[in-house]
Amino acid sequence: MKEISFSGKTIMYAAIMAVTVYSVILGMRWPIRAGLFPIIVSSVVLILASIELGFSLFKKESADDTDRIDFKLSTDVDKATANRKTVSTLLWLGGFLFGVILFGLPAAIPLFLFFYLKFESKEGWIFSFMMTFVFWGFFYFLFIWLLKIQFPEGALLGLT
């Protein structure tokens, strides 16, 4: 369990360092007025990230070190389940994004809602259907009928 977070953190800081090195290189190519801030800020981030990388590799973390003013992920679910659920949520979101690109938002919303409720949340057919219908009705009423927003067509519909 400890190993996963350990290596993940290392990868994250390494990635941050790579990005900052790249932006310093880009910044060097620009005239000084455009490059000044990117170079300075990137260098500072680079230094801080390498410090943190060093900490995460060689120093044991105490509770004080990880105590941030921010939201914390729940820890009462076991790691494997948590990871699986995280990945599946991201896949659902990605699928929704794909749906919006393919079919356009107005069509993607009911498709996503219905499939999610039916196959992910394992709700009954009727509940899934009703929920989708009610929400889609609300969406259609507010955005399309009332506000007359023209959503871009999906890539599939644009082919005709």
């Binding site: 659902w92 979101l93 929704f96 919303i109 996503f112 809602l113 999610y116 409720l117 992910e120 949340s121 709700e123 929920m131 929400f135 969406f139």
Partner: peptide, 8 residues
């Protein structure tokens, strides 16, 4: 139940 709605 609430999650897909929030995502949308």
């Amino acid at each position: 139940r609430i999650l897909p709605i929030l995502m949308v």
